[in-house]
Simulated assay, not measured.
Amino acid sequence: MLTIAVTGATGAQGGATARALLTMGHRVRALTRFPDSPAAVALRDLGAEIHHADFDDRGSLGVALAGVDSLFAVTTPFGTDTTAETRHGVTLIDAAGAAHVGHIVFTSAAHADRATGIPHYDSKFAIEEHLRASGVPWTVIAPAAFMDNYATGWTLDGLRDGTFAWPMPADRPLTLICAEDIGAFAALALDRRAEFAGRRIDIAADELTPDRLAAALAVALDRPIAHHEVPLDYVRGHSEDLAAMFDYFATVGLDVDVSGLRREYPDVAWHSFTDWAEAQNWSALLAR
């Protein structure tokens, strides 16, 4: 049994990782800025220790990481910016090194190591490089596009009107993964340190075109859904970063060996997009 610190524990990836580790029987130290939030309370009820930690407060990280065996590290530019994301990741890695943490699993993004020019991929790759140079045993897992994003934001708004609004051509494949599978894979890497240390692995569970995504959503929602290609200029008006990402998806694409991952790591459920879509409470989501 290991004691494993999980950052972003009240978010999608961190929460999924914490739950998977608890199921494996490990001790989980859930790090969050909001220890009294409903998500933190739910983790506490499952058996996790809840510790306050803030990436902008190195002292809080040192206290939270004292005595842990391993760390799951997740960072985000959303809500701040890419410069802050890199700074936060560097601070976290340095705090983990000072606390003599024995293994860090960092969740990045598929293809972030390929000079994509996508700002929030480049910020994650800068953290990867700092991690490799830190001297702490490391693993990088790099998820493809998140299925979970299809139940939020403008996509959810479009589904209310029978439209799957997505900034990609109808026939361009995209590799996808849900947060639950990211958490399961991260937990596997943390549980099997010797096997995963020093490796960077792009991960995805399915690959579909927007047309086929719309068809799967139509079945799950039990209503007609048609794909509508949102112009990149519209996306660019909201975020240059996201526009760069969708341009990359549409031109280069995210090639991830889905069948190889399923074959090599059968312990992970590897949800298809249909599995994920049919598991969502669409009535509640659409009523918001």
Rank of each mutant, 00 (worst) to 15 (best):
64 A>D: 07
128 E>F: 03
11 G>T: 10
82 T>L: 05
219 V>N: 07
36 D>N: 14
166 W>D: 15
150 Y>V: 12
119 P>Q: 00
249 F>S: 14
155 T>Q: 13
39 A>F: 09
152 T>F: 14
43 L>M: 04
81 D>A: 07
188 L>G: 03
6 V>C: 05
90 V>K: 11
156 L>S: 08
97 G>T: 12
241 D>W: 06
43 L>K: 02
184 A>Q: 15
79 G>V: 00
51 H>N: 10
73 A>Q: 11
122 D>C: 04
192 R>F: 00
261 L>N: 08
1 M>Q: 03
97 G>Q: 07
146 F>C: 03
117 G>A: 05
237 G>M: 11
45 D>P: 00
157 D>P: 02
118 I>N: 07
153 G>H: 04
190 L>R: 00
78 F>K: 00
64 A>G: 08
249 F>W: 14
151 A>D: 09
86 T>H: 12
22 L>S: 08
116 T>M: 05
274 T>F: 09
1 M>I: 00
284 A>C: 03
90 V>L: 11
210 P>K: 00
45 D>R: 01
212 R>H: 13
105 V>H: 00
148 D>Q: 08
55 F>S: 11
276 W>S: 13
20 A>L: 04
98 A>D: 12
169 P>R: 11
277 A>F: 07
280 Q>P: 02
13 Q>I: 03
181 D>I: 01
11 G>L: 11
99 A>W: 01
221 L>I: 09
43 L>D: 04
176 L>M: 15
192 R>C: 06
236 R>D: 15
153 G>R: 03
9 A>F: 03
87 R>A: 14
36 D>Y: 10
174 L>V: 15
118 I>W: 02
182 I>P: 04
178 C>H: 12
178 C>F: 08
196 F>V: 01
96 A>M: 06
285 L>D: 05
12 A>H: 14
67 G>S: 11
85 E>K: 01
107 T>G: 09
95 A>V: 05
173 P>H: 10
22 L>G: 06
114 R>G: 09
157 D>A: 15
152 T>C: 10
179 A>E: 15
100 H>W: 01
99 A>H: 02
60 S>F: 05
253 G>Y: 07
127 I>H: 04
276 W>V: 13
200 R>C: 08
110 A>W: 03
56 D>G: 14
164 F>L: 15
53 A>K: 07
201 I>R: 01
54 D>K: 04
41 V>N: 13
247 D>N: 12
141 I>D: 13
24 M>V: 01
56 D>P: 02
57 D>W: 01
4 I>T: 05
